[in-house]
Design a protein around this nucleic acid. Structure first.
Lengths: 213, 213
DNA sequence: CCGGGCATCACACCTATGTATAGGCGGCCG
DNA sequence: CGGCCGCCTATACATAGGTGTGATGCCCGG
């Protein structure tokens, strides 16, 4: 089943300084945000694969890993959860690097509570958006995978605008067979009109490239 | 007519320090990049509306304007040209702000020549991409505007997947008339198939929203 | 005032699409 | 081995889409 995404957001705080973890937890708690804390990046990676919306707040300097590497690891692992960086000793190139790689914000310590809250709120909102589109996309992908190989082929070809007979020629089969597959594809994909099918195919194509490669 | 975008890129350098302008011009010249220099933001805004691809390299501290405001001004004015920021006295929040607002890079002075070249190359590449999609989009938009009002309505309705007869009902006209408008729309838009028309409509919709508002 | 663009509609004809019915062939799994 | 499923095909019919011819009325600008 698709995610409901109606749970309360969860903020993951990663910092080796226990007092900082406590302070942040208190801050987020004061605005009704649930918090999970970790002392190291490894702790987070092994522990949490929560499906709740949220974001990560982490110090760039961690015992086991550079915060920027960690960020890279996250995207490579396919975890798209937004990251808010903080640091006590960072410089401009470091902040620029983090922002280029998708960080929501980069706060030097000490920071004002409000700045942190603004950043976390923005990150959570970004996560919400991300989850909506990811949900839609994975629903499409799931449906697409219920199609038989032939049905998938036919769907991709007809959504380029080719006529049934042209698709039939391309695949070396008869037009009537294309119609069957086409109809099955429409039905299984939940597309009520051809225009919907075209849009579904467009939304699917980026995802399909990633797998074929 | 559409832009050709085959001209050589042009780097706009905005810095009040003449020696810095000279140094950058020399640097860019050494790799075959043409450069235009300006002492103030105003100089740039009044002078240059060049249609050539390129980017802006500017110092955050300018005589007449803050570099960050300038960046905001650019987007508001609809000038999507990428910006590389540099500064001699910036801090992390400043760099983060610039990156959030779309800067390609943010280099503290002094910087290594290679870092500046990398940033400028990336910015130019981004501009090239931007121009490609903008060109495509504005071509679509131009074509769409050659459609009569009725043809536009019909195009937007049929591309939602509605059948001709449904569109006819919505508009209070006969199905045959819808077919006429539909055919005219296909022809004027240069769409050879219905799928193409659907994709054109999808590409147009964001642009149309911006005007109606 | 007339030509042209716009919008409307009708009739006719052809093609494309959608679906139902019915059947053949091969592979896989219980 | 006997189904079931995927894949293929055919005939037939109904509906949707696309185009041409012809025609009416409106409005605007030359």
């Amino acid at each position: 089943m698709r995610q409901a995404t109606n749970e309360k957001p969860l903020v993951h705080v990663i910092d080796d300084d226990a007092s900082m973890r406590g302070a942040l937890e208190g801050l987020f708690d004061s605005v009704g945000l649930q918090t999970q804390t970790y002392a190291t990046a490894k702790d987070f990676l092994s522990a949490s694969l929560s499906e709740r919306p949220g974001c990560i707040v982490l110090d760039v300097r961690l015992p086991d890993m550079n915060g920027l590497e960690f960020q890279t690891r996250l995207v490579q692992t396919g975890i798209g959860i937004p990251v808010v960086m903080m640091t006590g000793y960072g410089d401009i190139p470091m902040s620029v690097h983090a922002m280029k790689h998708g960080a929501v914000d980069f706060l030097p310590k000490p920071f004002r509570d409000q700045d942190m809250l603004d950043a976390v709120m923005a990150a959570i909102e970004r996560d919400r958006q991300r989850r909506v589109v990811e949900n839609d996309d994975s629903l499409l992908k799931e449906r697409f995978e219920t199609l038989s190989p032939r049905e998938q082929e036919v769907m991709l070809l007809v959504t380029t605008g080719k006529m049934n007979k042209q698709v039939a020629g391309d695949l070396g089969i008869s037009e009537i067979t294309v119609k069957i597959h086409r109809g099955a594809a429409m039905h299984k994909m939940g597309a009520r009109t051809y225009a919907e099918l075209v849009r579904m195919a467009d939304a699917l194509k980026p995802k399909l490239g990633k797998l074929g490669r």
